[in-house]
């Protein structure tokens, strides 16, 4: 395993207790240049995770708390008239940072949501006719409360698709919770973290991800999964070609995290719940957010060729 990554994982696991899989998935998402959506109840450590990752990776960090009265300019920035110079000067919004925590993104109105999502997609902000690039690497962790809570604007499916992965943190197990309750305050811990990697190293890793080998045998497997999701009557829609691309990109990053330079079926299986859960919908109970279970069923239904 690459040494700096190892250190990143170790350090993060010291603060976020009992969630190694979620930490790795979050890192996978970052390495694959995707964005991450964390969907869970308040207070399970979403913000902490984002914060820790930013500190450990040495990225500029901005947190945007979304509210229902927020406007796109509150995120992107605004041009203000300067009396001395007689010109308009652009005041960059909070989005101009390397790592953004978009907290409770489903509390904002669709207009504001789409401003964020467009910036995510295009890695740039266009405001008053001027296009300004966002810093690189650029990584968004959005958090969302479960959609059946009141006062929310759930992200539509097309917007969900912009996120490479959706994961859930869930409650910690008993042992981890004990550690959490008896340990030091998390805020103090975060303040004491040191960056384990610089931006150049991170960008280099992102390039390495793209070099990870994908064999024809593995593509057979991925296609079998896609085909099954489309032919099965279990799902409302099958997985899109973009979902297939995302699956491979994420699996490459996962393989790199595992210290391999080729993707194996296990990598696909590891990232599939994260990549596919927000893209699959059960025919039977549309309401329940059981994307994880659906993804696991999908894995079990397809034999590795």
């Amino acid at each position: 395993m690459s040494h700096p990554l190892h250190a990143v994982i170790t350090q993060t696991e010291q603060v976020i207790l009992g969630k190694p899989r979620q930490i790795r998935l979050a890192l996978t998402c970052l390495l694959a240049r995707g964005h991450l959506l964390i969907e869970d109840l308040p207070g399970v450590g979403k913000t902490t995770l984002a914060h820790v990752l930013a500190r450990t990776l040495g990225l500029q960090f901005q947190r945007i708390q979304f509210t229902s009265d927020m406007l796109p300019a509150d995120i992107l920035g605004v041009s203000i008239y300067q009396r001395d110079s007689g010109e308009f000067k652009f005041h960059a919004g909070p989005i101009f940072a390397q790592m953004i925590l978009a907290d409770e993104v489903n509390r904002a109105t669709p207009k504001t949501q789409s401003a964020l999502l467009e910036a995510m997609e295009e890695q740039q902000v266009t405001s008053e006719g001027e296009t300004r690039p966002l810093p690189a690497p650029f990584f968004v962790i959005a958090t969302q409360n479960p959609t059946n809570q009141i006062g929310t604007f759930p992200l539509p499916e097309s917007q969900l698709d912009r996120f490479l992965m959706r994961i859930q943190l869930g409650y910690p197990d008993a042992q981890a919770e004990r550690g959490l309750l008896s340990g030091v305050d998390r805020r103090d811990l975060i303040a004491g973290l040191t960056p384990q990697m610089n931006t150049a190293e991170l960008t280099d890793l992102q390039l390495q991800v793209r070099q990870v080998f994908v064999s024809p045998a593995l593509l057979d497997y991925v296609q079998a999964i896609l085909r099954h999701s489309r032919e099965s009557a279990r799902y409302v829609h099958g997985l899109s070609p973009r979902a297939g691309l995302s699956l491979i990109a994420a699996a490459r990053a996962w393989a790199l995290l595992d210290g391999r330079n080729a993707v194996i079926p296990e990598d696909i299986q590891a990232v599939l719940p994260g990549v596919a859960s927000h893209r699959l919908q059960s025919v039977q109970d549309v309401q329940a957010s059981d994307g994880d279970r659906l993804a696991r069923e999908l894995i079990e239904a397809v034999a590795i060729p």
Binding site: I264, E266, Q269, I299, E300, A301, V302, I304
Partner: peptide, 9 residues
């Protein structure tokens, strides 16, 4: 081995 089980798993 389950049909969907990878070699490493």
């Amino acid at each position: 081995r389950a049909p969907h089980e990878g070699a490493m798993d």
